[in-house]
Design a protein around this nucleic acid. Structure first.
Lengths: 261, 261
DNA sequence: GTTTTATGGTTTATTATTTGAACCGTTGGT
DNA sequence: ACCAACGGTTCAAATAATAAACCATAAAAC
C-alpha cells in the first residue's frame, strides 16, 4: 500500500460519531506506528486537510476540504441539485430518501432527507461508507455495472451486517439479475435489521452508473401501498436527477423505468 | 517534501477555472515526472478523492471530498452558519462580502455573497488560495496572530500582485500594528487593482484567530459613507459569526469593536 | 497516406524516502 | 512519588518512491 493511500485512509476515519481523533487513537485505528501516523498527520495538517485543536491536540478535518468541495460543487453541482429533489421526494413518500455516489468499491452518501412525521425513524449516518452488496443502492448500481466490476466486488470477502445479510455471491448474482430486469432493487433487512429498502441506479452524462437513489422504510411500516409509493417516487426522482445533472439513461435500459423521450 | 504533500498539492491545482486536469497538464503544473504524477493520481482516485472521466481520461475532484465536507459541516458547522449572515450583510452594504479561513500561511475562502445591484462587480474566485500579506482579510488575521506567526509569514518572499501591493516587511509591520490598534484592516488595491477592502478578524472557540470577514469595494465606488457602512457591517458580522460558532473574542481586544458583554 | 506530435499509461533498476523501536517531556490519576 | 497515557522526536534499516526509457493510441501536419 502506498503512503498516499495510508494518509487518505486516515481522513476516512472521521465520521459524525468520531469528528475529532487524537494521535494515539489514530494509532489504534490504523494499526500503524506512532511515528508514521504522526508524520502523516502533520503533513495532512500542513496542507489544510486537517487542523489541530491547540489545547486538546486532537485532529479534525480542515478548511481545504471545504474549499475543494466548493470547487467541485460550483463546477459540477450535485449536492445542491440533488438536495431539493430528495427533500420533495421524502415528503411525498413519507420516508427517508437518500442519494449515494459510487466511490471505488463502496457507496459514498451524498445527501439524505427524512420527513420527521413518524415516531420511528431510520438512522442514516451520512458520514459512513456503505457496502455495495448489502444495500439496495449497491444492488441497483451493481445491476447496471460491467460484469467485470461485479466480479471484483463479489470476489472479495462480503461482510455480514445482520442475520439477513446475503453474503453468497451466487445468490447475489441472482438478485442482481432480477434488478437488471425490473430496474428496481429490493433489500429486506440486509444492512440494518429493522429496515427494508428500494433503490434505482442513477446514470451520469456518459451513460455509466454514477450512484443510486434509495428509499429506506422501517420494516414495521412496510405495506404493499408503501412499497408501490416508494417505487413511484424512485422512478420520478431518477428522471429528475438524471435530467438535472445532464445524465444519459442507456436506451437499451430506458423502458424499465417507462422513460419515453 | 513528503509524498503525501506532493499528492495533496495536486488536489490544490483544481479551481473554478480549472475543474478538470489531464495527466500531461498535471506534469506541467507540478514539474514532476510523468510516472510519479500518474501513480499519485491513481492513488488519489482509488480513494475517491479524484475521479477520472471514462472517455477524456481527465481527472476531477471526487466524491470523497463531498463526503468529508459533509462530515465537517455536520460536526462543526461553519459554511452553513456563515452563509446567511454573509448574504444579509452584503445586501445591507451593497457590496461583496466574503469570509475566509486561515489555512497554513494562506487564506482559504469559505463563502462570499455579492448583491448584484451594481454594474461593476468585484470578481472573487472562491476556489483560489489567497495571500495573507496582500488582502485585508490577511492583515486582519496577522494583526491578531502571535508574533512568531507574523515573522514566518513576512520572512518568506512576498508576491507582488499590483503596483500597489506592499511587499516590504517593515511597512507591513506598521500596517499590522495599526490594524491591531483599530480592530479593522484597510487595503487599497493591494491584491486587485480596482478593489479596496476592509476586514476584521474572526476568533474561534479557543480565542485564537480562525479567519476573517471582509468587504470588497470597487475603487471607483469608494466614498467615506461607503467606507463607514462597510465598517459597521463588519462589526455586526463579526459579533454574529463569533456568537454562532461559539467563538471567544479575547477580552483585552474586545473594546476595539465596542463589544460589551 | 505517411509522419509527427500529442496524449495516457507502464516498466525497471536506482535512489531516497518512509519506517519503527527506543527515547523524551507532560499531564492526570492513584 | 509513582505509574500510565498522551503527544511528539530521533536515527539506522528497510521499503517504497522515483525517473528514464518504453508502449499504444489518437489527432494534427505534411
Amino acid at each position: 500500500m502506498g503512503t498516499i493511500t495510508k494518509a487518505l485512509e486516515m481522513l476516512n476515519c472521521f465520521s459524525r460519531k468520531r469528528p475529532e481523533i487524537g494521535l494515539s487513537e489514530f494509532v489504534r485505528l490504523t494499526g500503524r506506528d506512532k511515528a508514521t501516523v504522526h508524520r502523516h498527520l502533520s503533513e495532512l495538517e500542513q496542507n489544510g486537510f486537517l487542523e489541530q485543536h491547540p489545547v486538546t491536540r486532537a485532529y479534525r478535518l480542515g478548511p481545504a476540504i471545504l474549499r475543494l468541495s466548493a470547487v467541485r460543487e460550483t463546477t459540477n453541482p450535485l449536492r445542491s441539485v440533488v438536495r431539493p429533489i430528495i427533500l420533495e421526494l421524502s415528503n411525498e413518500v413519507g420516508e427517508l430518501v437518500h442519494f449515494s455516489m459510487l466511490q471505488g468499491l463502496s457507496l459514498s452518501p451524498v445527501h439524505n432527507a427524512d420527513p420527521r412525521i413518524h415516531g420511528t425513524q431510520v438512522f442514516f449516518d451520512e458520514a459512513e461508507l456503505l457496502p455495495l452488496h448489502a444495500t439496495a443502492s449497491g444492488l441497483a448500481i451493481l445491476a447496471f455495472s460491467p460484469g467485470k466490476f461485479v466480479d471484483r466486488v463479489l470476489a472479495r470477502p462480503l461482510q455480514r451486517f445482520t442475520e439477513n445479510t446475503i453474503t453468497d455471491p451466487d445468490t447475489l448474482r441472482d438478485m442482481i439479475a432480477k434488478v437488471r430486469e425490473t430496474g428496481f432493487s429490493f433489500l429486506e433487512q440486509g444492512f440494518d435489521k429493522e429496515v427494508t429498502s428500494r433503490g434505482v441506479p442513477i446514470f451520469g452524462p456518459d451513460g455509466t452508473v454514477l450512484g443510486a437513489l434509495a428509499v429506506a422504510i422501517p420494516h414495521t411500516r412496510l405495506t404493499d401501498e408503501k412499497s408501490a409509493a416508494a417505487l413511484a417516487v424512485l422512478r420520478k426522482g431518477m428522471v429528475r436527477i438524471t435530467r438535472s445533472i445532464g445524465g444519459t439513461i442507456p436506451p437499451e435500459h430506458a423502458h424499465k423505468w417507462c422513460i419515453d423521450d
